[in-house]
Design a protein around this nucleic acid. Structure first.
Lengths: 205, 205
DNA sequence: CCGAAACCTGAATCGGGTCTCAGGTTCCCC
DNA sequence: GGGGAACCTGAGACCCGATTCAGGTTTCGG
């Protein structure tokens, strides 16, 4: 994790003013891409939302796709951070897993852009789609692997289990957070999700 | 399920020749949309792939979005049919579930268009995205509900469980079928998936 | 074999998108 | 308070796409 210096398209480092403008454009991109989707989100709309001229966009990003890729990286970093933060409070693997899910759902509620942008990546930037899921699953795998090694959970396959948990969380999040009214998981759904995750972490006896 | 008569855009029934041409355009759409994505898939490319002129497209479909919607309905009908077919051979709920997954993975291997088109629906046609998942989950719910009622599985919530299974299947399918080389689930992954599904169907003791 | 219905054609219309660039403006150090 | 570096502007060059439509071709019952 090296801190990379922000640069303009020519590779020159930015002044504080440049850094701020770049951030404004990136944030505006998140909003506009999330609301309209990649293709409907024109550079005109993004720059309007950011309050800058069209040309300014190209001072900081090579292309429309480049800002999309960066958005994926940015959101990915942020969810993983939120999830790690949440799960770190857990005393057992199961508790940690549930807290991680909770953090994930909260993040989803606050940043629907995550879903909406990832969905588009399939065609806009397939490599970023893989990047996102690979990194997300890596976090799970690591934690599950550790839990297997300490004997806290039985003989499960961390890789397959990680992807299963990820898929299950994504779908539940879509159904109850994204499509739901309250922007939070209803209690009974949360209960049931607990049961399911418990089942998933249970090795054959 | 009423058989609907195929018509041109004015609502007139088609002759056999018309039916064939319409089908050619729809099939070409599936191929082109799956390969290039909705936005890159121009009507020019679709009609070229179908071997007809651009105008012909509009004899059978109102718009580019209309053919997309129909594609979703078509693929949805076909996966559900394949899954029902597969799971109906199962003697127990678990066995049926596994056979359903197997059918789903086979379908995915043969029709990657399913994933690729559904992903796009988020922005192209949100109502079709919901349509797809709602109908898919409905199949699960019905079967799970029945199994709960006969006491074959314990006190699980069919709705939440259905969406969890769906999400898990989708993610595993993406990772090992769509991204994988062999277009089939490796044995060890399949084993592990069995364990996971078993866990998901297990009510609290 | 004729006439109308059904089908097919593809150039043209119209709208809109990304990215460039020549010309300002602001900042900041000396 | 002057000057160069960094930053910003927005009109327009250039490209591409969905949809239409006036005119041709095929089919088929009688």
């Amino acid at each position: 994790m090296s801190d990379t210096v922000l640069t303009n398209v020519d590779g020159k480092p930015l002044s504080q003013r440049g850094i701020d403008t770049r951030r404004r454009v990136l944030d505006a991109s998140e909003r506009v891409f999330a609301e309209l989707g990649y293709h409907e989100a024109s550079i005109v709309k993004v720059t309007e939302a950011a309050g800058v001229a069209q040309g300014t966009f190209y001072l900081y990003f090579d292309s429309k796709k480049a800002v999309f890729d960066e958005l994926v990286r940015d959101l990915n970093r942020r969810v993983r951070h939120a999830m790690k933060e949440g799960s770190s409070q857990g005393k057992t693997r199961l508790e940690a897993e549930l807290l991680g899910f909770d953090a994930y759902f909260r993040f989803t509620a606050e940043h629907p852009a995550l879903y909406r942008i990832i969905r588009q990546a399939e065609f806009v930037s397939p490599e970023m789609l893989e990047y996102h899921y690979e990194r997300l699953s890596a976090g799970y795998v690591e934690a599950l692997q550790a839990a297997v090694e300490t004997g806290e959970v039985g003989a499960i396959d961390p890789e397959v289990t990680a992807w299963a948990l990820m898929g299950l969380g994504e779908m539940i999040g879509m159904r109850w957070i994204l499509w739901g009214k309250g922007k939070a998981l209803p209690d009974d759904v949360w209960q049931e999700l607990g049961r399911i995750i418990r089942g998933v972490l249970e090795a054959d006896t």
